[in-house]
Design a binder for these strands. Structure first.
Lengths: 146, 146
DNA sequence: CAACCACTTTACGTTAACGTCAACGTCGTC
DNA sequence: GACGACGTTGACGTTAACGTAAAGTGGTTG
């Protein structure tokens, strides 16, 4: 778990076209993010994606690519697919969402925020541990090299 | 996943005794960290803990408590139990570890570090997304309230 | 046209990380 | 001495997130 450093393709180096009409096949998308097509289909089955269909074949637009990107980022942060879907669904339902739904969404967001804070702290602490262990390891190595 | 905010009990408010001789039962530890005894036994089975035994019964010392704490923190950061164990084992084997082992440990640590960096970036990005979604949600709410 | 992709659906398999019983031993206490 | 709270070891069950294999469709290329 927790790999991949070449991902996150963001070719925003264009002249900011009004609407990017680029589309992607499932295979393209899979290579882009270093996942398998199976994974992408699974995310669709779980309600995280809803690509267009040309016959049987799936056609992905920018919107879908962004969703996938956010989904994978959420995963790296330890969110379950169900949690991610919940946010995505509420986000989509926002424009015509009723007050209760919106307040619920704000609650969820606050929750996620707490999560982030906690994780930041965890990372800080973990980095200290790593520093510590590394120092000790280097010391022992030093002694071995005489 | 990703809950609990009352955990991390660190009663370091004593007069720094030379060696804290406090011990814990499995139930105490479980309540402390808001996990079940089953979880703690499972971690032992996976080689993450190795408590003393008084007859059949497990007795946990400070060292065990710290390990459990680190383990749970690692989990919140998305590490698998296997990964965590690997680090713990190498850490324990450090004092008499050979050079190859130690270099391997340093590699692993560097890897974890990269992980942390990536996660920090992910968190920053995610926080922006949350900001954005929250803003939009508040706007819609505003309009609903007339 | 055959061969080869890349795509599709269906369905069963797998792994990690526990949950959930059952069946039993050991205290303290009422 | 029965009862409840806590501990123990199996052993089987469960869930999430895919992997994998089988069998078929549709385009293009030598």
């Amino acid at each position: 778990m927790m790999n991949a450093s070449k991902a996150d393709p963001t070719p925003t180096a264009n002249g900011s076209l009004p609407t990017q009409r680029r589309t992607y096949s499932i295979g393209e998308l899979a290579r882009m993010f270093e996942v398998t097509p199976r994974t992408i289909r699974f995310y669709e089955q779980e309600g995280l994606l809803a690509p267009e269909r040309r016959g049987q074949t799936r056609i992905y637009h920018e919107k879908d690519r962004v969703r996938l990107k956010l989904t994978l980022r959420g995963k790296r942060l330890g969110f379950s697919l169900a949690e991610i879907r919940e946010v995505i669904e509420m986000y989509d339902a926002m424009p015509d969402g009723n007050a209760r739904q919106l307040k619920r969404l704000l609650e969820i967001l606050a929750d996620k925020r707490n999560n982030m804070e906690r994780q930041l702290e965890d990372i800080r602490l973990m980095q200290r541990e790593l520093d510590d262990v590394e120092m000790r390891a280097r010391e022992v190595l030093e002694r071995l090299d005489h």
